[in-house]
Design a protein around this nucleic acid. Structure first.
Lengths: 198, 198
DNA sequence: GCAGAAAACGAACGTTCGTGCTAATCTAGT
DNA sequence: ACTAGATTAGCACGAACGTTCGTTTTCTGC
């Protein structure tokens, strides 16, 4: 039972990268099998359906995201340092080598926003959690007095997500070399809007 | 030669709506033909290739966008009124009935950011123009003294695009009933950040 | 109203899609 | 080393993909 899990993990790693470029629907059994030098049926046997494969890809990516972004950022002190760490690691994540097509969640969000089903529901759950992490991080900062108490955590999370999406658009589609600079500037503006007057 | 252009227009209208839901690649000749009660081959003859169809869909949508968003907004007076009109009409556009799947350009941007070709190039051109319209509108406001002269038009355009993308994410994927409110609030914050102190 | 052009059709093509079967091969526990 | 069970391969399927072809229907200009 060991070997199976190993190949399954290898499949998911490749599938995640492929999905970042071609979307979850673009992760085709044939192409994936060819990349991994497996037979279509041999690969398929691990998942029993394409939907199950998509769900596991999403779960795999979410676990990676927690590991690469959330967990290390939560080690930073509350307030600005933690928020900055979340943002910087998020930027880094969407450029990381296992995601040659950019952030998988951005791709999947647009792809699934109109296709009902369990994959969509799963993605919605993941995104809500992530927005929750950002909002909570700001809220903690408010309680610690780093941000003024009119700062709206949910609005802030929403706005930061917008900065990230704009970055994705500028860097991936427009290939704007200033995309990263612009993203950081926008984020700093958001931060200073929430900062408590001293 | 009259009838042909008429059906071609009807095809493009349907295709635009379909593309907003399923993406440009999801605009399949068969499905489109079925919706319009045409034969695959009869429809195909109008375009000679799928790529040409996609290009024309993009062009069709761009023309609609100019008509529904840009042109009426440019009739507003410079400065805040014009920027507000651009934003409001943009919001309206992405909810309009010919786009049941939301803004086609958002969908296409994510879909094409990794697929080279003429369709991608065309989309990039459209998006650059649109960002240019926003930036120029702010610049005109700066010159008129409505905004302070440290306001960066390109950064502003980039940020407004982010607000729009976040709105799309919140409303389409998360089905957040507050999406519109959040988008307006974020836009107002951007505006007041550029406003000249009096 | 007729001739010629334009437009739509129906059938077929080669591929690729996801998904089943069955058979062969490999791995782990004894 | 042997065997039970897990893992992979081989092959086939029906459907859908974009595209081509030759034919038929439907327009349009005189």
């Amino acid at each position: 039972m060991r070997k199976g899990d190993l190949t399954r993990q290898a499949i998911l790693a490749r599938a995640t990268g492929l999905a970042s470029k071609a979307g979850l629907e673009g992760v085709t059994i044939g192409a994936l099998a060819a990349e991994l030098e497996l037979s279509k049926s041999g690969l398929f046997a691990h998942f029993h359906s394409k939907e199950a494969l998509q769900l596991q890809v999403l779960e795999h990516a979410a676990a990676q995201f927690v590991e690469h972004v959330i967990r290390p950022a939560l080690a930073e002190p509350r307030g600005e340092p933690r928020l900055r760490a979340l943002f910087e690691r998020w930027l880094d994540w969407s450029q990381s080598s296992p995601l040659p097509g950019g952030c998988l969640f951005v791709q999947a969000s647009v792809e699934l926003d109109d296709r009902p089903g369990s994959v969509r529901e799963h993605l919605v759950g993941i995104q809500r959690q992530w927005l929750g992490v950002i909002a909570t991080s700001l809220q903690k900062g408010v309680e610690a007095g780093a941000f003024h108490d009119r700062a709206d955590p949910e609005q802030f999370a929403h706005d930061v997500y917008g900065v990230m999406l704009a970055y994705h658009h500028a860097s991936r589609l427009l290939r704007d070399p200033q995309a990263e600079t612009r993203a950081r500037r926008a984020f700093e503006t958001l931060l200073s809007g929430a900062r408590a007057a001293h």
